[in-house]
Amino acid sequence: MKKELNRKSKVRYLKYVLFLLISVVLLSFESRAQKKIYIVTDLEGISGIYRWKQVKPKDTPIYKQSCEFFMADLSAVIKGLKDGGASEIVVLDGHGPQAVLPELMEAGVRYITGTPRPKPLFGLDASFDGIVQVGAHAMRGTSDGVLHHTQSSSGRFRLWYNGVETGEIGMVALMGGYFKVPVIMVSGDAAACREANKFLGNDVTTVVVKEGIAEESAVLYSFDETQRALYEGAKKAMANISNCEIYSIDMPFDARIELTKPDEKHKRIWIKTGTYPSALHAYDIVSEKSKKR
């Protein structure tokens, strides 16, 4: 009888251990499955880019080369996201003149390109698990930011939300916050990554692909190094999604945009202000910037 009880106890124990193992495997699979990522891209924060003529005007040999640099960085990130568990990836071509080269697109990824579009972050909604910003740059006035600007590279715009000066990294994060989607990774120069940590905390994965000296000078890294770092950073970001915070500010929010003269430091030409009901309107004051107040 005692042997029979011991045998039954062992069977029950083995069943319990098997149940736990199956549960762990299923939970692990579930955590990796169906991760939907939205990538917002720009060109100024891409590996090897440090001069304005590399990012505008379009349809020049040097611009085409920049787009090739861009597609290489983007592909490294996409491969890292996929290997980290991303099941669906949507890329938004966020640089004004557009940078996506169709012949270099990764299979199984959807690319949104061309203008105009109905809204700035077209296609972003609450179904996404995370946002990745590839090729980001620092806000206007960042002394060591490569090609630093806010929204318009030709204008001298500066932007504030609730009195806090904010650049494009924060704008994307704020819009993501409306849909409860966190920014999980930012790549760009050291200044852009520093800005990302300031607004989004230390749980966001940042990948530095160059170091700014001034607006059009930088310490560059080899493409092998940056693409390896981008791939590893993307994998890390996927594993850390649950720790990334959703960015938000008090609502309704006050926005302020200024235009300054390019040849006179911080001399204002005009100012526009407005109050908006939710983060869904984060870009409204930018679209209205041509209306002087």
Score class of each variant (00 low, 15 high):
T115H: 07
A138D: 00
K198M: 11
E165W: 07
Q151R: 09
K261Y: 11
I184P: 06
A76L: 03
V17P: 03
E288W: 14
R293M: 13
G141D: 12
L5N: 15
E44R: 01
K53P: 09
E168Y: 05
L104S: 04
M139F: 13
M1R: 04
K8E: 15
K236P: 02
K3A: 15
E103I: 10
D93C: 06
L5M: 15
T150P: 03
I184F: 07
I257M: 14
T115W: 10
H148D: 13
A107M: 11
M175N: 15
P182V: 10
F29N: 00
A76W: 02
S75L: 08
F128E: 02
G48Y: 01
E211H: 06
L74V: 01
A107L: 11
V164D: 09
G123L: 11
V208Q: 05
S66I: 07
Q65R: 10
R110F: 11
L81D: 01
P120W: 11
P116D: 07
T275N: 00
P252L: 01
N243H: 10
G176T: 02
S152E: 02
V207L: 12
T41F: 13
Y231A: 05
E232F: 10
P182Y: 09
T226L: 13
V91M: 05
E258S: 04
K261N: 09
L200A: 02
L20K: 01
D129K: 01
K289I: 15
A107D: 15
Y50D: 04
E195K: 02
Q54Y: 14
K53E: 14
E211S: 00
S217N: 10
V183K: 04
E225T: 12
A190H: 10
P57F: 07
V11E: 15
M175Q: 14
I257S: 01
V100P: 04
V286T: 13
E103Q: 12
K119F: 04
V207C: 12
G130M: 02
G45L: 06
K289R: 10
R158M: 12
T115Y: 11
G141Y: 12
T142A: 10
L147Q: 00
K289T: 11
T113S: 09
F223T: 11
A282P: 03
L104P: 05
S87N: 10
N162G: 05
T60K: 07
K15P: 01
M185A: 09
C193W: 03
F199P: 03
M1T: 08
L74A: 03
L259I: 07
V25Y: 08
L21Q: 07
H149D: 08
L220F: 11
P262S: 10
T206Q: 00
K35S: 03
T142W: 08
V164T: 09
G45M: 06
V204P: 13
R158S: 15
M251N: 07
T205R: 05
I249H: 06
W160S: 02
V24Y: 08
E88G: 02
G130E: 02
F70Y: 14
R228F: 13
R140I: 00
Y283W: 15
T113L: 12
T60I: 02
G114F: 06
H281F: 13
E225N: 04
E215L: 12
R228T: 10
Y38W: 13
S31P: 05
G108Q: 08
Y221C: 08
E232T: 07
I249L: 12
Y111G: 02
G212E: 07
T205E: 15
